[in-house]
Simulated scan of single mutants.
Amino acid sequence: MELRHLRYFCVVAEELNMTRAAEKLFIAQPPLTRQIKQLEEEIGAPLFIREARGLSLTPAGKFFLEQARQILDKVNTTVSDTRRIASHGKVIFGIGFVPSVFYGQLPILVRRLRQNKNLEIVLHELKTGDQVEALKTGLIDIGFGRLRIDDPEVDQELLFNEPIIAALPASHPLAQKRPSLKELSEIPMICYPAGRAPNFVDISLGLFHRRGLRINVAQQVNDVQTALGLVASEMGFCLVPEQVRRVHREDIAFVHLDDDNITSPVLCCRRREPPNAVMRLSNVILEELVENRRTGRYPPATERDGGSPRRPPEGAEDSVP
């Protein structure tokens, strides 16, 4: 089995039409049909159901498609990173994140890591579930999300539980108080992110459903910035993690709820393997930033005012290749 077999299979699986797949691959249809047949014979299982109206994937084919995509993603990432390392002589460190986490101390972590001239930091905006796959394929080395994922190849660490607050139009009467979920349920709600579950939508709606409250979802959007734009347009409210209030907008009021126990976890994902020098440095910085938050030093004054933050233990930064 060669990589071209995997590439051919993925295109056919996406098109579910041999003619269109052949055109997309710039090869003739008969050779493509033979390649797919050879792949099925080598695997020892049919990957497609062939019917007059077209192709469909067998259960084995669906499983193989998922695995083939991971393999190709890993190969593409490896080739890309190898070229980058060869051209710059740097170590690549990939960080995955959900957008709401990037309003907190994650930018500080990135700035601190970038102080090492031998490191190139690559950021990837990914949902928590996608971060797990990105860790396994090597696209990222560490991820920050909000949903718990059970995977034997990935460790998930709870950094802290963050209060959930409401973003309301500044002119709305509820913007002048700490509203209850019952009060919020009486006005339209903007949800994010749109897309496959589980996501922050499930966390938000679950808060109301568990209390027997019905909510009117006005619209689902892909990211928090769009949600805030709709709030500013007075289309409704949205629930956001507390650190999102660092976005200063005159037309939006960020208010705490009357229940302080409504929180969202901030989780860190890593591959289940011994940490290398870069990961050890990242862990030292991350531990300091989390401690700053827990003790109320958030953000550290030195970071806010442009000064130098407290350095990691002696030798931690120098140990990075």
Rank of each mutant, 00 (worst) to 15 (best):
E14V: 04
E15D: 11
L16R: 14
L16V: 04
N17W: 00
N17F: 02
T19V: 05
A21G: 13
A22K: 06
E23N: 13
L25H: 13
F26D: 10
A28D: 15
A28E: 15
A28S: 15
P30Q: 15
P31M: 11
L32V: 10
L32I: 11
Q35W: 03
Q35C: 10
I36F: 04
I36N: 07
Q38N: 14
L39V: 07
L39Q: 06
E40V: 01
E40T: 06
E42K: 15
E42H: 14
G44A: 13
G44H: 12
G44S: 11
P46V: 13
P46I: 13
P46Q: 14
P46G: 13
F48S: 09
I49N: 10
E51N: 05
E51Y: 00
E51C: 03
R53Q: 13
R53V: 05
G54N: 05
L55P: 00
L55A: 11
L57A: 04
L57R: 09
L57W: 07
T58G: 03
P59R: 11
K62A: 01
F64M: 14
L65S: 04
L65I: 03
L65R: 14
E66T: 06
Q67L: 07
A68E: 09
A68T: 09
Q70G: 13
Q70N: 15
I71N: 01
I71D: 05
L72D: 02
D73E: 14
D73A: 11
D73F: 02
K74E: 08
V75M: 08
V75K: 14
N76Q: 11
N76G: 11
T77C: 12
T78D: 05
T78V: 01
T78A: 11
V79D: 07
D81W: 00
D81T: 09
T82M: 14
R83E: 08
I85E: 06
H88W: 04
G89P: 07
G89C: 10
K90G: 02
V91P: 00
G94L: 04
G96K: 08
G96I: 02
G96D: 07
F97T: 09
F97A: 06
F97L: 08
F97Q: 01
V98P: 01
V98T: 13
